[in-house]
Write a protein that binds this DNA or RNA. Sequence first.
DNA 1: AATAAAATATACCGATCAGTAAATTAAAAA
DNA 2: TTTTTAATTTACTGATCGGTATATTTTATT
Lengths: 193, 193
Amino acid sequence: MVRQREFDKEQALDEAMELFWKKGYEATSISDLTAAMGIQRPSLYAAFGGKEELFEAALRKYLNLHAARIRAKLHTNPSVKEAIRAFFGDLVEEGYRETPSKGCFCINTMVELAPHDEKFEILTREHEMYLAVIFQEAIRKGMKSGELAGSLDAKGLAQTLVVALIGLTVLLKSRPERSFADHSVGMVLSLLH
Amino acid sequence: MVRQREFDKEQALDEAMELFWKKGYEATSISDLTAAMGIQRPSLYAAFGGKEELFEAALRKYLNLHAARIRAKLHTNPSVKEAIRAFFGDLVEEGYRETPSKGCFCINTMVELAPHDEKFEILTREHEMYLAVIFQEAIRKGMKSGELAGSLDAKGLAQTLVVALIGLTVLLKSRPERSFADHSVGMVLSLLH
DNA sequence: AATAAAATATACCGATCAGTAAATTAAAAA
DNA sequence: TTTTTAATTTACTGATCGGTATATTTTATT
């Protein structure tokens, strides 16, 4: 009955995600996108609607992958303290290895679009709140196991870790001396003691 | 010998700074700028060179004002602890009052331009390092006066405050529940004890 | 008053922007 | 095999982009 799509929609969305992640919304043109996605212009509009709809789809995909990746990282190590330490260590490590530093697609969008578009304000806010919940779960787990003091404020601590995560991610884009990031990570982790 | 400029260059630069700060580099057009600055297009190019040069001039002006404002805020209160508490309190307060939240021009530039333009990577990095020095001076002052423990790591602590400042500023763009910001501020301030 | 230098205003440049109309091609259903 | 539906390709739209050529106006110097 119908001709079928010649490209893989998820794969094309992945390419769009990478490009929007790396360059942001305004600096990415439809021509950039079609080139990276390997499709023609009308195919993009037929499959994804338009630039903003495509951006939103790419961001939503990123948010899902991002949250899942963080949750997984926080549960690979039996020690919650070690897991969180490794998480921030890897964050810094990757920030210096990757060039240029794409940072976090969610954070990039909070800065570029959230202030002027309520849809992205909500989307990014809910993601950051969700990340706080993920950290909170890990902290509670450590408190239950006795690894962390039962007197800790799990929620406040988790929210503080998210603030530090955002701050570090943005700071790394300017490639400061390594000790700047390392000292900050150490200080933040000391809140777990 | 020559006709003199009919507009005030510093005043025009202020308008450009506000606009770039609010909208970022890519989303701000020359037409937006001339309208806000109240000048004609060729006057802009004659006085400032071009879009990127104007952006850099606006950013440099912001960085100077920003650093001076922070230094002043940290020295209005005889208690360093109270001064830092007030600083972060005001930051959160303003983040919720101002709509939309312009955030920090330096942070916006770190996210939008630093990863792809070494000039802005350096400019923003040096500003954040300078902010850390300003915080460090305040902390050392508190240590000398006996208000803060002499065992504190002033440098690391100052760098951590900068990371928290960045994280909070970005987070506020998504307008999270107030307690999110307040709890994080409280936790970070607890590092001063 | 004449001259020279720079700021102004109008109008324009080619390039690129996001988005689409029209024609062609492919493939499933009849 | 014919028909129908949608994906592809090519080419295009008007609008806007950053930047500038040209001509006019202003003002200090001669």
